[in-house]
């Protein structure tokens, strides 16, 4: 338990340190890239050929810092546990009246749910499932 708390502190401190270090690096790279771009602009105006190098450094730095910024944002966004929607299908086997609703605690497949509102039949849960949206990207990975 003591070690757990220690790890918790290390982890939390690590997460904070990680974020602040990354942020500082991103800001420094961003500032340097903008400076390089400004230098490039000045050099090109003056007809100096080294402006091309500054331009290249500036754009690479800008792209890198933007990418890293997006990565840190993505990391923060992913820190949740998703609850997928679960569907319960209720069917009357006699008149085939179908009712689709969200899952409720106590539902189970083949559970009788009383008399059908359309006829005298017994309503029954015939299916409980979650639907996963198809990933088009995955299909491209293999033939």
């Amino acid at each position: 338990m003591e070690l757990d708390n220690e790890m918790s502190k290390v982890g939390q401190a690590g997460a904070r340190r990680f974020s602040s270090i990354v942020l500082i690096v991103i800001i420094v790279v961003l500032a340097l890239s903008l400076t390089a771009l400004y230098q490039a602009w000045e050099a090109i105006q003056a007809g100096d050929l080294t402006g091309g190098y500054y331009l290249l450094i500036g754009f690479v730095g800008l792209a890198l810092s933007t990418y890293m910024l997006l990565q840190t944002r993505r990391r923060i966004k992913r820190f949740t546990l998703e609850t997928p929607p679960i569907t319960t299908i209720i069917v009357c086997p006699k008149c085939e009246f179908k009712n689709v609703r969200n899952f409720e605690r106590g539902d189970y497949i083949l559970k009788d749910l009383g008399t059908c509102s359309k006829c005298e039949g017994t309503m029954m849960i015939t299916a409980i499932y979650r639907e996963v949206p198809e990933k088009r990207k995955e299909e491209k990975l293999y033939p």
């Binding site: 690590g14 990391r75 546990l81």
Partner: peptide, 18 residues
């Protein structure tokens, strides 16, 4: 080490949620 640390934090979050 940083990568493991990040995953460990996520694992801790999942464990605590559990």
């Amino acid at each position: 080490v940083r990568e493991i640390e990040g995953s460990l934090l996520r694992l801790k979050f999942i464990r605590d949620e559990g």
